[in-house]
Nucleic acid binder design. Sequence first.
DNA 1: TTGTTGTCATCAATCGATTGCAATATACCC
DNA 2: GGGTATATTGCAATCGATTGATGACAACAA
Lengths: 342, 342
Amino acid sequence: MANKVTLKQIAQEVGLSPSSVSLVLNNRPCRISEENRKRIKEVAARNHYVPNQIARSLVMRESRTLGLIVPNIESRFFASLAGSLEKRCREDGYALFITSSGGSADDDLELLRQLVTRGVDGVFLVVGDEFSDDRALREEVSHLPIPAVMVDRAIEGLECDKVMFDHEMGGYMATRYLIEQGHRRIACLVNARRSNTGRKRLAGYERALREVGLPIDARLEFESEYYIPSAYEASEAVLATDATAVFASSDNIALGLLKRLHEMGKSIPGDISVVSYDNSAADVLFEPALTAIEQDPGVLAEHAFGCMSKRLAGRGGRRAEEVVLEPALIVKGSVLDLTEYS
Amino acid sequence: MANKVTLKQIAQEVGLSPSSVSLVLNNRPCRISEENRKRIKEVAARNHYVPNQIARSLVMRESRTLGLIVPNIESRFFASLAGSLEKRCREDGYALFITSSGGSADDDLELLRQLVTRGVDGVFLVVGDEFSDDRALREEVSHLPIPAVMVDRAIEGLECDKVMFDHEMGGYMATRYLIEQGHRRIACLVNARRSNTGRKRLAGYERALREVGLPIDARLEFESEYYIPSAYEASEAVLATDATAVFASSDNIALGLLKRLHEMGKSIPGDISVVSYDNSAADVLFEPALTAIEQDPGVLAEHAFGCMSKRLAGRGGRRAEEVVLEPALIVKGSVLDLTEYS
DNA sequence: TTGTTGTCATCAATCGATTGCAATATACCC
DNA sequence: GGGTATATTGCAATCGATTGATGACAACAA
């Protein structure tokens, strides 16, 4: 294990003061002779000198490091978001501290504190979807000494930059599409009990029905957690209805549903049509591929970084910015067009 | 945005020196009266004081932060590894800096430098599988001022702690199992050209064949990158052989193969048997589920942290430790038992 | 008064950088 | 030679903590 080389050592070797070395290596405007400039750079390079960011952060009061808290890095969507965001940060010379909380507000809080004391310049928060007790977290976020951007979801009623897809619109688009394809009995499988996001998607579903005068039938609305087994369980009841189509409000929910369909020997879209949410790797496998509402994590990352960037630059108004992105309906082959037969 | 509270401010409010406050809050053995102790703690709590880790790291020369570099956080396996590792680190009070390189040795190097200058106490490296020019990276790793543990894969010939699954054994187990089930013409689809890991799996495959006196037939060995489309491309040729079984040496490779099988209307295991590698979410969907060689990322994380922990504690010998874990064969339903028919 | 012992708390250096201000050396001008 | 301008470089404070060495003060003994 090699030693770390410090500014002082470089200065000593060159025979100048640490300040001069610092000035030269940071290309500050200063009057150091060309000759010494060269020597400093040469010695620094020869010794593989890299400035200690810790020390630098302390005095500069910025670390060029950002933090990200996601509920679960093992989820495809968050992993992809993290990947995109990291790449984007790096482009601007920021490192990204990716952390995964497990989803509870307590863990989120703990991680947030960790990030702040470790001196990140800003945080991206993917928190606050579930209905847990988030008072402490809310308190912490509102008193943060650094900018925060809430991504994909938000703690309701908090004055803070937000970037997210329009979940209500997603639910609406999915349902609207099914209606246009001639479906009238449309079931939905959502996580409305424990997720704000789920509630919004459900609201969109209902709006689409209302808009065309279709009844909102509670017997067609089913509840599922965002886990495959949960959706698998719930799916039996869904398939016992007379619905000709199902809106599955997350990729995992769709997977659980598909598993059940598979087991019951039902085919898509022959026996039942499905619109899913998010794109999943499983997609490639399915024949037919799933028609779905897509949210591009890259776009989310881009806008989130944009907000952050503004705040960090001191631009960015005093009021919180709110970016709402429209999801896209990607038509593949899991929906049967009933209008053809009419 | 609230201000950060410093030690000095607390000291001022209590009417004691910063040193006293520091000593008390860190529970150092020192002679401060019970009464003042209480007041210090009370004031610190009331002001939500949290020590600035940046400053602390600088003087303590440790940050209780570790770093992780993975080739691609969007891959299921690495995401899962990152998740497990982070959880494990947190249990011991370490934060984990997760970064994703994109796989090139240059990026790995850049990230590694970033981590080091940001003062991590140690790094977990998932690097060096591909045959790229890794001289600079190798150089850097061997002169690292902090402990490093290579995980899942390694830069060959580097004196450094290593924790990984036995890939050769995995290839062997998969093939051996197929042989035991009565298969004689066994194809394999591996990434041997650009991946050490793939080469080892191929070696295991060949050893199993040799062991029972089966010929090693180059016409049954196919090459594929670790991406679904690549495997999909390669699969056509695989299916044109007379093989009754295929060993797919990664989950993505298996997915590409499956897609092609699906398209050709071939069924598993009726038309062809498949043994895959790693467990994938797609797994739940498949009927039958895939028999596969499994590597539990949690186990990898546990051992990797163990090594790191030893090094950090100054235990850990001067020689590098090398932990080789045995993968597990998980039998599901994608292999046809030919012995039943004999 | 002087010395000893014990208790409680502070001083000041340190970590490795950054940076405003002061200092020195040289040149130039009259 | 005295005075001013200009080109170079260094000093020392600072960021917010930690910590070994040291000081102040009281009580008590000789």
